[in-house]
């Protein structure tokens, strides 16, 4: 796989004339960037702007790939809600992108991806029969099926219990290795485990936070990770206060 592009995001976003944020972020190609900040600060808006989705405000600035090629059709997206279509089987859900583009889906590849995320026994199941963790695995397989170099994740694991969340973090880190990933999260522990780069977003703007020297994904009980997580949480609480 060729090195995926990085993304430069710099600009201001206004809603009804009021400044929501003034951000300057660089997403390094092929690495995980975690974007942290309290609710309402505009994290998801940044993600929507990169995806060229409606935000209800006005953005002035620059969003571009570092290799100069346009971003259209090169980004896949995974949200907090799994967004599986209830009337389709898990396998059909993984292939939905191809159907929506009017292409013939590669069902064999979709099945392989489902095996890879541990859903080999649930190819024909309806999403309503799966647990929350399994549904997010299916959503991850759907994201992987798109095979895009850039992946944007909007709190995809926040609704899961702690154990399932840790499993999903490991799985996502392994499956999305080598891609440019932006993960929006509230969770300092998640950011510290997964990030090559952590950006903290507040009303004052965006700032980088130093990550541990150990390679990501980091073990939950890694002392450096735990120390970083503690400092990060204290900082966020200070920022929020």
């Amino acid at each position: 796989m060729t090195v995926p592009p990085g993304i430069r995001f710099a600009g201001q976003h206004h809603i009804d004339g009021r400044l929501l944020f003034d951000a300057d972020i660089q997403l390094p190609g092929g690495q995980w960037t975690c974007l942290l900040g309290r609710s309402g600060v505009g994290k998801s808006t940044i993600l929507r702007l990169i995806l060229d989705l409606e935000t209800g405000g006005q953005f002035t600035g620059d969003i571009s790939a570092t290799n100069g090629v346009g971003l259209a059709g090169r980004i896949s997206y995974m949200a907090q809600s799994d967004l599986l279509l209830p009337w389709l089987s898990v396998l059909e859900n993984v292939c939905i992108g191809a159907r929506l583009r009017g292409e013939v889906p590669d069902a064999a590849r979709a099945a392989d991806l489902l095996v890879r995320v541990g859903l080999a026994d649930h190819l024909a199941s309806k999403p309503s029969t799966l647990s929350g963790g399994m549904r997010q695995r299916a959503a991850l397989a759907r994201t992987l099926f798109e095979d895009r170099p850039v992946v944007l994740l909007d709190e995809p694991f926040s609704a899961l219990d702690a154990g399932t969340r840790a499993d999903m973090q490991d799985l996502a880190a392994e499956a999305l290795q080598g891609r440019t990933v932006l993960l929006v999260t509230h969770d300092p522990s998640e950011a510290t485990r997964l990030a090559h780069q952590i950006i903290i977003m507040s009303a004052q703007g965006t700032a980088r936070w130093p990550v541990p020297d150990t390679p990501a994904p980091r073990a939950i009980d890694d002392p450096q990770t735990l120390a970083c997580q503690t400092r990060l949480l204290s900082h966020i609480r200070g920022v929020a206060a």
Binding site: L51, S81, L83, L85, I96, G97, L100, R101
Partner: peptide, 19 residues
């Protein structure tokens, strides 16, 4: 959410309607 996901997947409006 379905709309956003479909846009990022490059869905055509007729395919989005149908599927």
């Amino acid at each position: 959410g379905y709309h956003d996901l479909s846009v990022t997947m490059g869905a055509g409006k007729y395919h989005f309607m149908r599927h």
